[in-house]
Computed example of a mutant assay.
Amino acid sequence: MDSAKLLDILGNENRRKIIQLLANRPCYVSEISSRLGVGPKAIISHLGLLEQAGLIECSIDEQRRKYFNIANNMRLEVSVSPYAYTVTLHDITLDREKQEESPVKKEIPAGEGSSAFFLKLNSRLEELKIRQEELAQMQQQLQAEYTEVMDRCLDSIEKVARNSVECELLFELLKNETTLATLCYNLRLHPSIINANLIDLAERGFIEYSIKNNQYYWKICETGVENE
């Protein structure tokens, strides 16, 4: 699924509440309507959008009633900083080989007695919660360091760039390698101006290009600039 489309879907408060409710257990339309205080017609409309997006699915019980549950296991990450805005969507699936190698299967045999089996599963769950918290803290530290290094890069760019166009080009290329067309679009400048500055920066050893799919992709030189 496209991450932008998912953000649009989750932008609605009632749809977020529906997903939160279904994350606890499968529910019928009447249950969702009652819990959220929203009419069944509106709930059906929200459920339809969520189902089309692949976030939920429905099943029919023995009494021919339709109930809904979460269909996908995914992670949506949104990063906003002074220098970047990224939205990343990860589908979280384990293939059969990885499932067979899972620590849960190795450390917690499925055939154990009910109490011991449950307590070991709970212990493993607590370990995973701690690891999730550690990962979140590490991501925060990386984001802070990224911002700090970008600040220093901008200070450095102001010292080495010969004009404002070079400043903007180096800043764009710090974020990612890209094409002449994309640089022209982002900076709203004529290709001849962009190209002339790119060539000058390349001759001075700041940037270089590679060819992919018959297009030139410009990027910051990996080896850096030697002292002049």
Rank of each mutant, 00 (worst) to 15 (best):
Ser114Ile: 12
Gln132Phe: 09
Ala161Gln: 01
Gly113Trp: 03
Leu154Phe: 01
Thr147Ala: 06
Lys219Thr: 09
Tyr209Ala: 13
Lys159Asn: 04
Leu187Ile: 05
Ser123Leu: 10
Leu125Tyr: 13
Ala116Ser: 15
Leu135Met: 10
Arg204Lys: 12
Phe118Met: 06
Pro191Lys: 01
Met150Cys: 07
Val225Gln: 13
Arg131Leu: 08
Tyr146Glu: 00
Glu126Trp: 09
His190Ala: 09
Ile207His: 03
Ser115Leu: 14
Ser115Lys: 13
His190Pro: 05
Tyr209Ser: 14
Thr178Pro: 01
Arg204Cys: 00
Asn197Gln: 07
Trp218Val: 11
Pro191His: 09
Leu135Asn: 08
Phe206His: 02
Cys167Gln: 02
Phe117Asp: 00
Gln139Arg: 01
Leu128Arg: 06
Ala202Thr: 04
Lys219Gln: 13
Leu169Asp: 10
Ala144Tyr: 02
Glu226Asp: 13
Arg124Val: 08
Ile194Asp: 00
Glu112Asn: 07
Ile220Pro: 01
Ser164Cys: 05
Gln139Cys: 08
Lys129Glu: 12
Lys129Ser: 14
Tyr216Ile: 08
Leu121Phe: 14
Ser156Asn: 07
Ile220Trp: 04
Leu183Trp: 12
Asn197Lys: 04
Leu170His: 06
Glu133Leu: 01
Met150Lys: 08
Ser123Met: 13
Ile199Val: 12
Gly205Trp: 08
Glu158Lys: 06
Glu172Cys: 11
Asn195Leu: 07
Asn214Gln: 15
Leu135His: 04
Ser192Cys: 11
Ile211Glu: 15
Asn122Leu: 15
Leu173Asp: 02
Ile194Val: 12
Asn186Tyr: 08
Leu119Glu: 12
Ala196Trp: 03
Glu148Arg: 12
Arg131Gly: 00
Tyr185Arg: 09
Trp218His: 14
Gln143His: 10
Ile157Ser: 02
Thr223Arg: 13
Gln132His: 11
Leu201Ala: 02
Asn163Cys: 11
Asn195Ser: 04
Arg152Phe: 05
Val149Ser: 03
Glu112Met: 11
Thr178Gln: 08
Arg204Ala: 02
Leu169Pro: 06
Ala196Lys: 14
Leu169Met: 07
Tyr146Val: 01
Gln143Val: 08
Cys221Ser: 14
Gln215Ser: 15
Glu203Trp: 05
Lys120Gly: 13
Ile199His: 09
Leu183Cys: 03
Ile193Cys: 06
Glu166Arg: 01
Asn176Phe: 09
Cys184Val: 02
Ile193His: 01
Glu133Gln: 12
